[in-house]
C-alpha cells in the first residue's frame, strides 16, 4: 500500500492539522507501512458478519429529561483561552 505525501496532506487538512513537507514525507512512508499491515484483514471472509462497534451492545439508554444544574458558567468558562464572562471568544468567522 503506497500513500503519497499529497494524500497525507489532504487527510491532514480534513483533521485540521498542517504538517511541514518533511513530516508529510515521513508520515507517508509510515502510514503506507501501517496500511500494508492492515490490509491483512482482507484475507478474512466477513460477508455474513455483523460489525461490532462496542462490547456493550445494549440499546440507547434513556433517562427522564429533567433540567439539572451541576456546574456554574464560571466553571465551564474557566479553562477557555479567551472568554468574556458570558461567552467563549473566537476569531472572526466571516
Amino acid at each position: 500500500m503506497k500513500i503519497s505525501p499529497q494524500e497525507v496532506a489532504k487527510v491532514a487538512r480534513l483533521a485540521r492539522l498542517d504538517l511541514p513537507q518533511d513530516k508529510l514525507e515521513l508520515f507517508a512512508g509510515q502510514l503506507g507501512d501501517i496500511l500494508g499491515h492492515m490490509d491483512k484483514l482482507a484475507e478474512l471472509d466477513t460477508d455474513s458478519v455483523e460489525p461490532m462497534y462496542s462490547p456493550v451492545e445494549h440499546t440507547t439508554v434513556l433517562r427522564p429529561d429533567e433540567p439539572r444544574k451541576e456546574h456554574g458558567r464560571d466553571e465551564v468558562l474557566g479553562n477557555a483561552p479567551r472568554q468574556d464572562g458570558q461567552f467563549f471568544i473566537v476569531p472572526r468567522i466571516v
Binding site: A12, A15, L31, P51
Partner: peptide
C-alpha cells in the same frame, strides 16, 4: 491522520467496517 483516513469516504468499508466485523 490514520484514523481520519480509515474513516474517510471510499475507505470506510474497506478499513473501519471491515475491522468492526473482524472484531466480532
Amino acid at each position: 491522520i490514520m484514523g481520519t483516513y480509515v474513516l474517510s469516504s471510499g475507505y470506510y468499508d474497506a478499513y473501519y467496517n471491515k475491522a468492526a466485523k473482524v472484531r466480532r
